[in-house]
Simulated assay, not measured.
Amino acid sequence: MIVKAIPTNIITGFLGVGKTSLIKQLLATKPENETWAVLVNEFGEVGIDAGLLNNSDSGIQIREVAGGCMCCAAGVPTQVAINQLIARAKPDRLLIEPTGLGHPNEIIKVLSAPHYQNVISLCSTLCLVDARKVSDPRYSTHANFIQQLQVADVIMATKTDLYSATDPAESAALLTALQAYLNDLQRIDIPVISHSSQRDLPLDLLAFLDQPRRERAWALKANVVAKPHSLLRVTANTLGEMGLFAENVSEQRLTFDPRGIARKQNHGEGCFSCGWVFEPSQEFDFYRLMAFIQDQTRLATAGESLLRLKAVMITTDGIAGINWVDREYHVVELDDTLDSRLEMIATQELDWDDIERQLMACLVV
């Protein structure tokens, strides 16, 4: 039985800005006697971010909803995931990470619904932004990028250590440009916190997260074009039929082909994704896999349409967590994973069949 509304924060921001890394840092601050829950919504269909969080703490529960932007957040999968997390974890705090291509307004509307009023206490919404992107019209004029900033209660300028390692004045100019951009969006009063990926969380961020969300009716009226599948919504009757906090709602399972591979694709918001999941028994040659990923990202650097590549892979040298975005490439060793997963997001449909052949060539036979 829930006797106290759960403090809930939305962590939003565009693709590759560092949302998952920040959530990992936030989880490290969790008091030992508390249980925290995390809901991750990904644009791609296979779900990788939960694996990159590499959670081994019994006081943390993580749930993914793959295959959608936040324009369909009001659909059944997202609400069922929220309900199941609450029922199973009974968390002291809930963190929600929408996809970087999503409309955060929609998840705010879901969490503001009457049936959640005594269950969820919607606290500050945090938007992460890379100040280097403000001068790039692909970002600064993108409706989702703008909306993410408009709904935020706190903005964090991330990756500040990468702005300029040699010229502090250049870093300051980027932050000034970010503030000017926010002023143009009429976000003059919004707190802006700078954060280096190499440092601990700023203390003022934790204080801001506990503040109640400020109501901004104008922000919720943003012009968002809903997709046809967003018409499928959980009504009060539907919630009553399945039980608002039912635990027995079946979850989608992957279907592997005879090769032991499941492949899923998605498109929307001007982007295309393709993801592969491999049965746990399959293992990749680490060096062939790294060469494959370098080939894909080299093409992107040369002008191809790849926006993002991320993976959690079982290899001959251990479990590798891989993250590539905007020419920044990171590989970390993880403790555990259920299977191998790789996903790519691009601004146009790539030759997924050829990419799959190259990926399969990295398997240990």
Rank of each mutant, 00 (worst) to 15 (best):
K4G: 00
A5W: 11
I6R: 02
T8F: 06
N9P: 12
F14H: 03
F14S: 04
L15G: 03
G16P: 10
G18N: 06
T20N: 03
T20H: 04
S21I: 00
S21P: 02
L26T: 11
L26H: 13
T29M: 13
T29V: 14
K30A: 11
P31N: 13
E32H: 10
N33I: 02
E34T: 02
E34N: 12
A37E: 13
A37H: 15
V38H: 11
L39K: 09
L39P: 11
V40Y: 04
V40H: 03
V40S: 04
N41H: 05
N41Q: 09
F43H: 06
G44D: 00
G44Y: 05
E45N: 10
E45Q: 14
V46G: 10
G51H: 13
L52R: 11
L53K: 12
N54L: 02
S56Y: 05
S58G: 14
I60D: 00
I62S: 03
I62H: 07
R63A: 08
E64D: 07
E64R: 08
A66W: 00
C69F: 08
C69H: 08
C69G: 02
M70N: 08
C72H: 08
C72M: 12
G75W: 11
I82G: 08
N83G: 15
N83S: 15
Q84I: 10
I86K: 14
A87E: 10
R88F: 07
K90I: 13
P91A: 06
R93Q: 09
R93E: 05
